[in-house]
Amino acid sequence: MIIDELEKKLRPPEMELPPYPPKVITLASGEKMVVREAKREETGVLLGTIHPLMGVPKDYYDIVAARMFSEILGWYRYRVANEFVIVGAIDGVIAGIVTSRCVDENIGMSLHTLTIKRGLRIGAQLFAAKMEHHLEYIGEKEVWIVAESPIGFKRWMIEYELESAEDRYPEIRHELGGVPTYVLTRELYDAVRDQKVTGTRPVDPQVLATADRLKVPEEYPQIPGFKREK
């Protein structure tokens, strides 16, 4: 693709991000979830996975899905700086997605966590993977976080004992709607890492291969009777 001058001006400057090494987590059900970075060419399957959830108000799926849809589209069309997307896939079927981006080499901006398959703490595992990438592989000093749902607030703010940045507003201000911002510092992360972050590396090539080609879910527990239009 030839990028003309105007398109060049529209694109954000990019940092070079290190890759997130894939890992596999054995879920309580015994299923193996491969956790890996999504590739730009997988945008279609990611958007196809998210789209049905934009009509589900329960547990704030609608707002999370709508915002994540735009984040991934923005990533694909080069309209978000330094974004990365991590997926969790069971036998190739997408079970959850997280989005995040780097503000600079010190600050991470956690965007969204969307769980499709529920009851197995998939969201918690993927959020932990996102924090792992920011703090261990990219090497940032802290990650700014907000929650849109009570579930998210419990999982992130409470379980990670995040610091409220209310008294540092507007110096610390998450870019998602100006809602109260919390910060995961390296110190807090180190304190909970062993209880929150797991996964086996390197991944057995055969297991990793199950996630080579991502597939859209055919069932959504959030949408009883869901049938995907062919």
């Binding site: 987590i25 054995t26 015994g30 932990a128 209880q195 929150k196 797991t198």
Partner: peptide
Amino acid sequence: HVRIPCTLEAIHDGENAHVVNNY
């Protein structure tokens, strides 16, 4: 409520169990 079978490997024996089945 929770119609998910679980395995001993996943919730106790395996190396991810301490996080998957946390205290």
